[in-house]
Amino acid sequence: MSEWLDRYQSILPDMIKAFWETLYMVGVSMIIAIILGIPLGVLLFVTSKGLFWQNRWLNFILGVISNIIRSVPFLILLVLLLPFTFALLHNTIGPTSAIVPLSVAAIPFFARLVETSLREVDKGVIEAAIAAGAKPWLIIRGILLPEAKPGIISGLTITAISLLSYSAMAGIVGGGGIGDLAIRFGYYRYDNQVMYTTVIILIVLVQLIQFIGDWTSRKVNKR
């Protein structure tokens, strides 16, 4: 028993560091996904057929790019992006470097979820705004985004959870974070204690994100 506790004592600093690294990777990638994914999702939606910025080619090109990125397994995307990451940061190791592939994966993933929630917005409400002579910009800001907010928040939840599991994969190639810890101790050194602990931390994190996401989504839903 005391051996077991001692082990925790010695591993604790590593664990705390890994925990913060994970939060850092996921957090920054989420922010980038929000900043770029929402506009991409909106663009995918408003350029589609029957909408006010209908544009077949732009819609097609954006759609194909998002689909390609989403169809590449994350581990392979990670490797494929190494030169890009290096060009951007002159480094490919560590949590900051992991943010690059994480963001690249998260942007189209989240954008599609945003697009899906926008599709759920009642067409009649958009039509009423067009009939009122609103500018497209006002329709996006004043109708599309607020009406889709509950769906977008659910999308954020799903994206955050996916990023958490991706970040663990990023650990495999030296990205740091909880996943890295699990690989280094659990896999290479057969240290079950560390491995299970990290898994439990990940489970708790996922539950927490899901809970907060669901609660917020319900809170903003006025329907």
Partner: peptide
């Protein structure tokens, strides 16, 4: 269009 009002069968109000 700002000078042509319109109302709808299903109201089409902004729910949020």
């Amino acid at each position: 269009r700002q000078k042509i009002g319109m109302i709808f069968q299903h109201f089409n109000l902004i729910t949020s």
